[in-house]
Design a protein around this nucleic acid. Structure first.
Lengths: 124, 124
DNA sequence: CCGTATCCGTAACGATACTG
DNA sequence: CAGTATCGTTACGGATACGG
């Protein structure tokens, strides 16, 4: 066997930190891999929604986490935020999935189909 | 408009805790949504690997987290663990992707393709 | 070589009170 | 209605020393 890399030897990382951080898969998993994003996406896929409507639609979520989740999804371009009634305190804010958000929803559905078919057992 | 649920009103949660916890999508995201699972899957997709080989192949991972990640993936049936050399202290343990793990890898690749095409920006 | 045990810091999450 | 502020807890992850 030669001294330098043959078949199974590996001297250098296959997954470097830089490459991993800029990986699209890593990115989307970071975005949607938190506790509540999938729930929010699911509800908004049904129909656009106000803040408190969302709060009631998702059992167990706190207003704090709902805010954070919405802001995160908005930042990523998956959710749009539209305040209504131009005053200083909007009487209603409508959240909706963007086109990108709807396409992500389809990806997640595909993943769900795979998981359900593949016998992926559920946590708990 | 009638008093009971018409079009936009919602009195009951659309996403209940029980349904959410047992959701396949939630399950797979919990499994693979942590920091290192995607990296491990990626390396093992290349070829089966020993513990320290994995450690060196993934820059920045600690032995502790590698162990935890491998155990988690094994528990979910995505990775197989095969100790070699029957003694009390195996001289080598080979980790590999199971058939289920390989199929998940394909799903993740699809997600990555979507993310790269859709202009999902990366974190950082 | 293949891990486990321990300690510690940070970040995520939950509860609740308060504001515009 | 639509949030923010504050606080406490718990889970995740990193460093490192040790054991089989």
């Amino acid at each position: 066997m030669s001294a330098d890399g043959g078949t199974a030897d590996r001297q250098v990382p296959l997954v470097t930190t830089a490459a991993y951080e800029s990986c699209p898969v890593t990115g989307v998993l970071r975005t949607v891999g938190d506790k509540w994003s999938p729930a929010v996406i699911r509800v908004l896929a049904e129909q656009p929604c106000g803040f408190n409507e969302l709060d009631r639609a998702i059992e167990g979520i706190s207003r704090r986490m709902l805010t954070r989740t919405l802001r995160n999804l908005e930042e990523r371009g998956l959710v749009s935020r539209a305040p209504q009634g131009g005053g200083s305190t909007p009487s209603r804010v409508e959240y909706a999935l963007t086109a990108l958000g709807r396409s992500l929803r389809e990806q997640l559905r595909a993943l769900g189909t795979w998981a359900a078919a593949g016998g992926q057992d559920v946590p708990g």
